[in-house]
């Protein structure tokens, strides 16, 4: 176990993606270690979403490789896996929390079924046990258990995001991708969600790759940060170091603008 902790969970090698002639992201390299939270920050068009989609195999990149260390210790290039294997990863060992709940939830089926879906996909065939697990997870994400049979379209935005998290974590994934999970939420609702994510990361030892344009979110959640601009990583390091002492002019600008907004 201790040996595993020393090896990267995800190893990204020279990853590039082009949409035809248009650059999505270029020459991205990094390692993600178990239990680590990495924030990818940048403005829209910086390539951060393209990168996230490549890492999560939603897009197969033009060039490069990403090695993922499975539960048995083997390290496989994601893009050499079959689509079936990729999809199994996505619904078992990984999670993906979307910015818009409608992209990450089934809005017309109950909260319980939303949480239970992955279990059923893995072959769980005991209704009572699936329901008990769903109740357990609703509690963990601070949703009242008596809402288990309600459809998420009747939930507030913050509850919907918490439900998305429960739906993803029910299979105990090791790596969770998050795409602007607090986007569109009120500040107080954001704060509660961020607290919840921090608590779950600590309790479950999750690794997270979170894409955000919000440096405050990055500072609160992440151990390391990667700043992207025009498809390239221009600066990366420990979050506190990068944000307290940015080397690149662009990062300085980003940091100063948030300080400005904050003051």
């Amino acid at each position: 176990m201790s040996l595993d902790q020393d090896l990267p969970l995800l190893s990204v090698k020279n990853l590039s993606h082009f949409y035809g002639q248009h650059l999505g992201c270029k020459d991205v390299n990094f390692d993600l270690y178990p239990g680590e939270v990495l924030a990818i920050v940048g403005e829209s068009g910086s390539g951060k979403t393209t990168l996230l989609n490549c890492l999560s195999t939603q897009i197969i990149p033009t060039d490069g490789a990403v090695y993922y260390r499975g539960r048995k210790g083997q390290s496989d290039n994601l893009y050499e896996m079959s689509e079936a294997q990729q999809r199994i990863l996505l619904r078992t060992d990984w999670g993906f929390v979307r910015q818009h709940p409608r992209d990450g939830l089934r809005m017309n089926v109950s909260a319980g079924a939303n949480v239970g879906e992955r279990l059923m996909a893995l072959g769980d065939r005991h209704y009572g046990k699936i329901r008990d697990t769903a109740l357990d997870w609703l509690e963990k994400v601070e949703i009242q258990v008596d809402r288990i049979d309600d459809a998420p379209r009747t939930f507030s935005g913050g509850m919907q995001q918490r439900l998305q998290i429960a739906r993803n974590l029910v299979t105990n994934p090791r790596l969770v991708f998050m795409d602007e999970p607090t986007g569109g939420l009120d500040v107080s609702v954001q704060a509660r969600l961020l607290d919840l994510i921090r608590r779950l990361v600590a309790e479950l030892g999750l690794s997270i790759i979170i894409v955000t344009h919000d440096l405050a979110v990055a500072r609160l959640l992440s151990d390391r940060i990667m700043v992207m601009k025009d498809g390239k990583v221009i600066e990366q390091g420990l979050t506190d170091q990068v944000l307290d002492d940015p080397h690149q002019a662009y990062t300085q600008l980003l940091v100063s603008s948030i300080l400005h907004v904050g003051s």
């Binding site: 089926v109 319980g112 992955r118 996909a121 209704y127 049979d149």
Partner: peptide, 22 residues
């Protein structure tokens, strides 16, 4: 079509789950 190709049938049980829940 992809779900059939890959035999991903969790959704069918979601429907049956909803039946029982309701």
């Amino acid at each position: 079509r992809k779900m059939h190709a890959l035999s991903e049938y969790g959704l069918i049980h979601v429907k049956l789950y909803e039946d029982i829940a309701t």
